[in-house]
Amino acid sequence: MAYIVAIVCSIVVALVLRLPLLPSKPYRYSFDVSALYPTPIIAIGILSIFLVLNYTFMYNGLVLAAVIGVLSALFVKYLFDFVFPKPLDENAGEDMNE
């Protein structure tokens, strides 16, 4: 249950912060962040670390889930490119006709 709250919360806050819903095209090779990926992955990953450590704060972890959802959306919006920079040479794998 807390997982659903974390996923929904992170996606909604990410959309409020004007992240695009889907990554830019081409979808499967894009390094751009978006609301559907990777925001919810980060949110549920950190939430399950808290749950495994038996730290659930109030209301069976629902408040914790909401807080982590908001924080992970903020992280993806403002800090993500600083922590995980995009690869420098963007065409490294694409020039196949050499």
């Binding site: 997982y3 992955i41 980060i42 549920i44 990953g45 950190i46 399950s48 670390i49 749950l51 495994v52």
Partner: peptide, 10 residues
């Protein structure tokens, strides 16, 4: 199950 989700994050 939380272990599987943490693995996805890692």
């Amino acid at each position: 199950i939380p272990g599987g989700i943490i693995a996805a994050f890692l």
